[in-house]
Nucleic acid binder design. Sequence first.
RNA 1: GCACCCAUAGCUCAGCUGGAUAGAGCGCUGCCCUCCGAAGGCAGAGGCCAGGGGUUCGAAUCCCUUUGGGUGCGCCA
Length: 581
Amino acid sequence: MTVFADFRSVVLDALAQLQAEGRVPSGLDTAAVAMETPRDPAHGDLATNAALVLARPAKLAPRALAEALAEKLRAHPQVRSAEPAGPGFLNLRVDEAVWRAELREAIDLGAGWGRSEIGAGKSVDIEFVSANPTGPLHVGHMRGAVFGDALANLLQAAGWEVTREYYINDAGGQVDTLARSAYLRYLEAHDRSIEIPEGLYPGEYLRDVGAALRAQFGDRFVDQPEEAWLEPIRDFAVARMMDEIREDLAALNIHMDLYSSEKAIAQSGAVEQAIGRLEEMGLIYRGVLEPPKGKLPEDWEPREQTLFRSTAYGDDVDRPIRKSGGSWTYFAPDIAYHYDKTQRGYDLLVDVLGADHGGYVKRLKAAVAALTEGRVPLEARLCQMVNLFKNGQPYKMSKRSGNFVTLRDVIDEVGPDVARFVMLMRKNDAQLDFDFDKALEQSRDNPVWYVQYAHARTASLARQAQEAGFLLDDAGLATADADLLDHPSEMALIRKIAEFPRHVEGGAQAQEPHRIAFYLYDLAGVFHALWSRGKEEEELRFVQASDPEGTRARLALVRATQLTLANGMRILGVTPMDEMR
RNA sequence: GCACCCAUAGCUCAGCUGGAUAGAGCGCUGCCCUCCGAAGGCAGAGGCCAGGGGUUCGAAUCCCUUUGGGUGCGCCA
């Protein structure tokens, strides 16, 4: 329970009293009643819109309802003042002890501080990265990887049961292309001179694969027809690429719970089964699509094909599921794969996709809606492009060129923590500029650094206090007399800490991990401000030998700050540091 | 032509799912270290929330529309 939730229910109790007295009609929907922090602290600690949202259904004037509520609220022992304001807001000032109690709460809960149960144990499957196993991960993948993992952490912190899943596209034409490209490198490893034709992957990273192929197969496939080597080489190369991808993810501290294989799904007959179901529903038919308006592809001609009637579920056009040769398009196994996910009993499916797959979302949702009759919600979270900058110059990437900036390049340069934090300082649906120079800068302009620095300062204070002879176990700190913390700067920090659980809930509900990053930046700012004040105002210095009781209280505040920073960073997947180096 | 995303201070971006006088950092202006907590802190200036309509007690936020950018658009995955 947060302070906000507590006082929201206090307001609802007051409402119930008014209803019992017949002053307010009963049966009002209170879902829209919110308790929030007023933007202007002069307005109080808490503000509710209760009177504004209830006035109309209650057929009362907002101000009058607010006044009636205020009258009841004033009787509450922890409410110091309750004043209607503006169009019908109700501003509350509560006993400062209410806020200070949150410090003890934080220290008692430790790593569990900030956790919420709004997820109520519901299960969610988050599919992310799912890059083709044809090469190392690049920066675009990195954003999806970081976002997906942080979202998973966030939902976990909010009480969801989370599965992290990676879908391996190990069945389509691209892995054949990979095999052919790897075969050339295999020949190269046998000292043949090779030329990489247009359409194959030129990347240097395949040299290692060629050497490994030689070590594995000797010269068995040299001068052999494609039928002889395509499959074994493909399987080998895909496995190699997936190992590399797993390593890339591990370097970012990401560990999937589940890797699902397109090939395995295709071989299990699940595709026929899923499409068969759609067929029974009358959603599969032979037909000719309208050409797109505007500029036509040069070789456009009307063509009859096998289509899924996705327009019946909100898509813009029906989608082909078979190629003219009779084999499935990419979409068909993907339908089967998503059908499989819906049958595993999750309460929610989330797909984290790159913006270039935006056009794919409607048909996926259509397929899932059709197959489950709308029972399993699928949400797509799109991550927009990442633009890299270095020395003020844009840094371009393009996967097939064989000359692209890999995830590993970035991590080698800035480390996983910085990379993750920067990726999470922007909401997922806005484009992101990643500036190497700024990421490594040591100033307030670099949020990563600023937040880490705040955490390091809390650790440094702990060390200092210990040297001065203070005991720092959490059990002891939790009993410190928090009432000694009465300076406005201290109260500001306490209030900021108390907000943390609220941001976890809000962020989880909106599926927006970046909110945690911004909250931490804010929290760090309030903490740094207090620290600096200690320079001018002696009584604000955390460790004061002449004031052991006050020092204990301040150390409790520092500890709560540290826990909040650390727990928040853990949601983002960033390691809290005890020292800056 | 259509779909999805974006547009907020000079710059980079938040804005708690519709609330009060729209916030932060950088940059700019002015303060704060002869010694202990200045890789920082305090204060100030800076806005027609891209334009126009609508919804309502109330809009940066929701709907329509125009403009400008990004991503896609029948057998690539």
